[in-house]
C-alpha cells in the first residue's frame, strides 16, 4: 500500500515539475507538440528509473561505507551522463525503432535536473531500494503527465490572439502557473489516502 501512496503522491501531490520545480527547462522547451512531449516523457521515465537504481547502489555500497559523501554530486552527475550515453548506444544497436523515437531526447536528459534531483532526494529521504525505484518511476510518470497535458494546452494556445508583450514565453509561463494551480487541488489527496489505507 505504501508503494501505491508513493506512486500517487509523486504524480499528483508533489508533481516534480509543477510543485517541485525540477526539469523546468524541458518542460518549457519540449512542450510545443503532444507527440514530442510524450517521447520526452517516456525517455525521462526510462533514464530516471535506471539512473536512480545505479546511483542508489553506488551511494549505499561505495560512497557511504568509505565516507566519500562529499563526492556525491560529482559521481552522480558523471554516472548519469555516462548512463545516458550507454543507453543511447545500446538502443541504437538493439532497437533502432525505439532509438528513432527517443534518440533525439536522450542527450538533453543529462542536464535535466529532475534526474539528478531525484537521485539525491531518495538518499535524503532515506528510501529503501524498492521505494526509490517506485518513487523514481512515478516521478517520471508525473513528469510525462505534466509535459503532455501542457503540450496539449499549448497546441490550443497557438490559435489564441495573445497581447503583443505577452507573446512567446510570457504567456506560456502564466499558463504553466494556472496548470500548477490546478495540481494544487490534489494537495489534500495524500492525507486522505493515508487515512483510507490506515497509514495515518
Amino acid at each position: 500500500m505504501q508503494y501505491l501512496l508513493i506512486f500517487i503522491a509523486a504524480i499528483f501531490v508533489n508533481n516534480v515539475v509543477l510543485s517541485q520545480f525540477l526539469g523546468i527547462c524541458p518542460f518549457l522547451g519540449v512542450s510545443k507538440k503532444v507527440s514530442t512531449a510524450s517521447g520526452m516523457g517516456v525517455a525521462v521515465t526510462f533514464v530516471l528509473t535506471i539512473a536512480t537504481i545505479v546511483t542508489f547502489v553506488l551511494q549505499k555500497y561505495v560512497l557511504t561505507p568509505y565516507e566519500l559523501d562529499y563526492l556525491q554530486t560529482l559521481t552522480f552527475i558523471i554516472v548519469i551522463a555516462t548512463l545516458v550515453q550507454m543507453i543511447e548506444i545500446i538502443l541504437k544497436k538493439m532497437s533502432p525503432s525505439l532509438y528513432n523515437a527517443l534518440g533525439v531526447f536522450l542527450p538533453l536528459i543529462t542536464t535535466n535536473c529532475c534526474v539528478l534531483g531525484v537521485a539525491i532526494l531518495v538518499i535524503q529521504i532515506d528510501y529503501s531500494l524498492l521505494e526509490s525505484v517506485v518513487y523514481a518511476f512515478s516521478t517520471g510518470i508525473g513528469f510525462a503527465l505534466a509535459l503532455i497535458v501542457f503540450a496539449a494546452i499549448r497546441e490550443q494556445l497557438d490559435m489564441v490572439d495573445v497581447p503583443r508583450g505577452m507573446r512567446g514565453m510570457s504567456v506560456v509561463l502564466v499558463t504553466a502557473g494556472l496548470l500548477s494551480l490546478a495540481f494544487m487541488g490534489f494537495s489534500g489527496l495524500e492525507g486522505g489516502l493515508r487515512s483510507l489505507f490506515g497509514l495515518a
Binding site: 505577452m166 510570457s170 504553466a176 502557473g177 494551480l181
Partner: peptide, 15 residues
C-alpha cells in the same frame, strides 16, 4: 506557492 512563481515570472517577462 508554486503557481505564483510561474505567473509572476510570466508577467515580469512581459514587462
Amino acid at each position: 506557492l508554486p503557481p505564483g512563481a510561474f505567473i509572476t515570472l510570466g508577467f515580469l517577462v512581459a514587462i
